[in-house]
Write a protein that binds this DNA or RNA. Structure first.
Lengths: 141, 141
DNA sequence: ACAATCCTTGCAACATTGTTGCGTTTATTT
DNA sequence: AAATAAACGCAACAATGTTGCAAGGATTGT
């Protein structure tokens, strides 16, 4: 299965006109295999022994994947970026996340839409929305 | 006006059974005088020359004020906490913020309520919601 | 008023997360 | 296979926040 994801990852990267390096493929395959949004550290720990990347390289590869819209970054209150693969083309401007206040896991809530029955102060312009629901996940609750 | 706020701040602190030190009063008065949520650095810069506090003392005083529910912390995507005075008793669990993507100012959107017509995955428990609307403020737009 | 106590402060050091500069290596193109 | 441009690894740096500890100041009890 991971092998299949490697091929998928490689395809995704090449379709975006980027170099399909072992690092990028490995990182994207890890993110594709994981439901949760992963931190830099979690990704690093899951890298196989045959693919040990430098911290900086990992940061740069993630940044590159974000730029190519293959993954997206999730803000959190613990000052740590989390990354999640963009499986289908989804509306990135209407995207909510759930964070467990106990174990800190983050998942995407794709079906949560936000109604815009409110308005900003005069002169303010809307760009995007960032919504995090906090609570306890199934394991911690 | 700042003098009046100092008295208000002192009252608020004493009502919570805490020591009304010059630092705490000054910090709370600054936050009461400001509409925007302020970073640690912004607060530090606004401290008068007669009240220069150590970085750590400022962090600890802010932490204390948060614990006493006199101010609240706002998460942001730039990994910096912002602090905002709790003027009235407002529902802290339904509290949205606006952040300007240009100048990084953060304000509270008190009138924005979030409808709960959605549900979490099975076994997940809701605790609170964190909503940040991003866009351009009146000055930058 | 004085001493005991407890909270607060300041300093130094540390921790975490992420970024930048630069020379070297690697993937892709020709 | 050689040339070229991109990606990598290392070291150093930057920003934000935290911890330990000794010194200072306020509060309480006598």
């Amino acid at each position: 299965m991971l092998n299949k994801l490697h091929i998928t990852a490689e395809d995704m990267i090449q379709q975006n006109g980027g170099r399909a390096t072992a690092g990028r493929i490995g990182i994207l395959a890890i993110l594709l295999a994981e439901q949760q949004a992963m931190t830099h550290r979690e990704i690093e720990q899951r890298l196989p022994g045959t693919l040990q990347l430098d911290r900086v390289t990992l940061y740069r590869a993630l940044e590159w994947l974000v730029g190519k819209n293959l993954i997206h970054k999730v803000t959190s209150d613990d000052r740590v970026w989390r990354y999640h693969a963009n499986r289908e083309v989804h509306n990135t401007h209407q995207h909510a996340h759930f964070k467990c206040t106990c174990c800190a896991q983050v998942i995407c809530l794709d079906d949560l839409t936000i109604e815009r029955n409110w308005h900003l102060p005069t002169g303010y312009r809307f760009q995007e929305i960032e919504l995090t629901v906090k609570g306890l996940c199934a394991d911690c609750g």
